[in-house]
């Protein structure tokens, strides 16, 4: 049974069709990287998976259950699917620790003590535990993103979605965030990662998807997609990346 299944999903912003009849499914323990040029619909597809974008048509299933119907149902889904954003989106009125406790306390209704120990455990995982008292504004980009990952992990998600997690970071600290994600992959967490880091995508993914103009142009194991792609568009895109 796929964890997330996207069926005939299309999404338009005004007259511009960003996603065109997409079918996609994600199995447990898969790590899928979605690559493609800007505007190809990668982020929109990812955001449809937790209904941050409502598809114009088509359906999204979580463990074979169709999502939607009521806001409550959607919130329940989102509690089980974590998300890490390009711009971190940490709550600026809360400390690092409070950020990581907020979800388990306010959404999962865990006790303060339990929320705290989960938060600390995940902050340790990303190497940010010493910074529990800091406010997001006092951290560097890489630190913020690691906290954001710990915050998402503290909800104990079944799937974690990453929306260009390193695009807002300078080249030197991209590595520290990617290392954290690699470790999560090793731990067997199911993940979908939209990224422009080709080497990372090749190393970490169990399947790589290349998106082009709102459709999935190619979907294959990374060793095939990166070395011997079928689709000429994939070839073109990769050659530009590898050359650059």
């Amino acid at each position: 049974m796929p964890v997330i299944r996207v069926e005939h999903v299309s999404k338009s912003f005004g007259t511009h069709e960003v996603l065109k009849d997409i079918d996609f499914s994600l199995e447990k323990s898969e790590v899928i990287c979605i690559i493609g040029s800007s505007g190809s619909g990668k982020s929109t597809l990812l955001r449809c998976m937790n209904l941050l974008e409502t598809p114009s048509s088509g359906s999204v299933y979580f463990e074979d259950e169709k999502i939607g119907g009521s806001q409550k149902k959607i919130n329940e889904l989102r509690a089980r699917v974590g998300m890490v954003f390009q711009s971190f989106n940490l709550f600026s009125n809360m400390t690092v620790l409070e950020n990581c406790m907020s979800g388990s306390m306010k959404v999962l209704k865990k006790s303060k003590a339990e929320a705290r120990s989960t938060a600390i455990m995940n902050l340790k995982k990303v190497g940010m535990a010493p910074y529990i008292n800091a406010l997001p504004s006092q951290l560097s980009g890489g630190q913020k993103q690691r906290v954001a990952i710990a915050r998402a992990l503290s909800m104990n998600p079944e799937v974690l979605l990453f929306d260009e997690p390193t695009s807002a970071l300078d080249p030197e600290i991209v590595g520290e965030v990617l290392a954290v994600i690699k470790q999560l992959a090793k731990d067997g967490l199911t993940m979908v990662i939209v990224t422009h880091e080709m080497a990372f995508a090749r190393d970490v993914s169990t399947r790589t998807i290349f998106m082009d103009q709102g459709v999935i142009a190619e979907s294959a194991a990374p060793e095939i997609l990166f070395t011997n792609p079928e689709n000429p568009r994939t070839k073109e895109f990769l050659s530009r990346f590898m050359a650059g």
């Binding site: 937790n50 941050l52 889904l77 974590g82």
Partner: peptide, 14 residues
């Protein structure tokens, strides 16, 4: 808007 999205993505109600 990121503050709202961060909260939404966690499943927080309005």
């Amino acid at each position: 808007n990121g503050q709202f999205e961060g909260a939404k993505a966690m499943g927080m109600s309005h």
